[in-house]
Amino acid sequence: MIINARYIAFWGCTIPALQPYVEKAARLVFGELGITLAEPEGMTCCPDPDITHMASHEYWLITAARNLALAERRGLDLMTPCNGCFFTFTEAISELKRNGKKANAVLSENFNMTFKGKVRVYHALEVLYDVVGPENIKAKFTRSLNGLRVTIHPGCKLLKYEEKRLDVKLYELTKLTGSTILTYGLERLCCGVPLMYLDADKAIELRTKPKLDRMKEVNPDAIVVICPACHNQLEKGQLMISEDEEYDIPVISLLELLALCMGFSPDDIGMYLHRIPADDALEKLGLI
């Protein structure tokens, strides 16, 4: 089956700067599935759904509107693997449709463009699950990750849009790779990112540590995430508490797992860049 879809890939800030391996894996996976990804030319930070939005609603809304208007002008929809960017754009679109007069006035005055409300934003999970479909993804697989024991951290923003069932899609796609999903009871617990803005030590102690402790009890080979902020936080948490306790559970993005299944080697994706080395898990799979 040939899928003729074209999206602007909005990578956000965290993925290009801290997790280039996720960007590489995503490009390989979408390339293999026949989806063309256009570059987010001229765009800026989405911006941050919590901090910037709290600090100045108007600045947040108009910056998001500018990014959306740029995509609209090119006639393409946005696809983002970042939960934060997805949240910002989805909320901004509904806000702009309700009350977009001021935003459009600023946009047309300064940049000679307007937001018309045609552009749509998709999460990478939606594109993978709804547009491509699990069976078409599976058709591209050349190897299975049988024997890999993983725990999943869905992340809060996947739960917001109940009708999209993004958390279920994350589970389904992970199951597709052949890895065993372990339940540890604290799946829903926050990774600790929002509390980091208040007090880093408290955030690690109250949110990240209990989560990692319960994960350690079931002894997984890796933690599967999709949200880059959670990815960063779970790695940072392990490195920050490593003085008292050793975790050494690599955090792997779902997109990396899919790329591995499609036959790419860990070095193709750049998995050597992981802050917590994934060597044990890859060795278990016989990939290195």
């Binding site: 919590d50 709290m54 809060c156 739960l159 829903r188 617990l189 926050c190 600790g192 990112v193 929002p194 509390l195 803005y197 208040l198 949110r207």
Partner: peptide, 8 residues
């Protein structure tokens, strides 16, 4: 999820 964003 207990993220405390609402309180902040």
């Amino acid at each position: 999820t207990g993220c405390m964003t609402c309180m902040m």
